[in-house]
Simulated assay, not measured.
Amino acid sequence: MKNYESLKTNKEFKSTYSLGKSYANKYLVMYVLKNNLETNRLGISVSKKVGNSVVRHRITRLIREFFRLNQCRLKNGYDIIVIARVNSNGKNYNEIENALNHLLLKMNLLKDV
């Protein structure tokens, strides 16, 4: 069962882009905005510059899998947009996982355990 929903509308993406905080690393950019809900909402954006549709969908699946496996570690109540950079093309799950963990630590979105 998912502990997050998806950002679907252009309005939701735009408000997160304009009002949220952003951090970036070599492979990904992450925008975060508090949403006053009890769940997280996730949006993933992978441009055509990254690669063909097979490559873009693979990166999307890796990011979605990371959030599925780590949903219990995340604080609730945030809109999160993850944008894949061109350098993410051809990276394996461990490299994407490290990049996402790095951004979540910078944003202080991990629960204190």
Score class of each variant (00 low, 15 high):
residue 84 A to Q: 01
residue 25 N to G: 10
residue 60 T to D: 02
residue 47 S to E: 14
residue 29 V to E: 08
residue 47 S to W: 11
residue 68 R to F: 00
residue 4 Y to N: 01
residue 33 L to V: 04
residue 9 T to G: 08
residue 77 G to Q: 08
residue 33 L to P: 00
residue 25 N to E: 13
residue 84 A to L: 05
residue 92 N to F: 05
residue 7 L to V: 02
residue 33 L to F: 01
residue 37 L to M: 11
residue 29 V to K: 14
residue 15 S to H: 09
residue 6 S to G: 05
residue 54 V to D: 05
residue 55 V to L: 04
residue 22 S to I: 10
residue 45 S to D: 04
residue 32 V to T: 09
residue 60 T to K: 07
residue 25 N to C: 15
residue 111 K to L: 10
residue 49 K to T: 09
residue 105 L to C: 15
residue 29 V to W: 07
residue 25 N to R: 13
residue 46 V to M: 04
residue 65 E to G: 02
residue 40 N to K: 12
residue 37 L to H: 15
residue 27 Y to M: 01
residue 104 L to D: 01
residue 60 T to A: 06
residue 61 R to H: 01
residue 5 E to F: 10
residue 73 R to C: 09
residue 18 S to I: 07
residue 18 S to W: 04
residue 8 K to Q: 07
residue 92 N to Q: 12
residue 58 R to T: 11
residue 63 I to Q: 00
residue 47 S to D: 14
residue 45 S to K: 07
residue 30 M to H: 04
residue 54 V to N: 09
residue 1 M to C: 03
residue 112 D to R: 15
residue 2 K to V: 08
residue 67 F to Q: 07
residue 45 S to F: 06
residue 100 L to D: 02
residue 80 I to K: 00
residue 11 K to S: 13
residue 72 C to P: 03
residue 60 T to V: 01
residue 48 K to T: 12
residue 93 Y to F: 15
residue 103 L to E: 11
residue 88 S to F: 03
residue 107 M to W: 07
residue 41 R to E: 06
residue 105 L to A: 15
residue 39 T to M: 05
residue 53 S to I: 05
residue 68 R to N: 04
residue 23 Y to G: 05
residue 40 N to W: 08
residue 58 R to K: 14
residue 29 V to H: 06
residue 63 I to S: 03
residue 33 L to S: 01
residue 95 E to Y: 05
residue 23 Y to I: 12
residue 58 R to E: 07
residue 3 N to M: 12
residue 85 R to A: 10
residue 37 L to S: 15
residue 27 Y to G: 00
residue 90 G to E: 09
residue 73 R to Y: 04
residue 18 S to V: 07
residue 43 G to Q: 05
residue 64 R to W: 03
residue 56 R to G: 00
residue 88 S to R: 01
residue 70 N to V: 13
residue 62 L to K: 02
residue 76 N to K: 14
residue 98 N to A: 12
residue 35 N to I: 00
residue 59 I to P: 02
residue 62 L to Y: 04
residue 63 I to N: 00
residue 101 N to E: 15
residue 66 F to D: 05
residue 59 I to K: 00
residue 86 V to A: 10
residue 68 R to H: 03
residue 59 I to L: 06
residue 69 L to N: 11
residue 107 M to P: 08
residue 28 L to E: 01
residue 26 K to N: 12
residue 101 N to F: 13
residue 80 I to G: 00
residue 2 K to M: 07
residue 76 N to Q: 13
residue 40 N to A: 14
residue 42 L to E: 02
residue 61 R to F: 02
residue 6 S to R: 09
residue 68 R to Y: 00
residue 103 L to W: 11
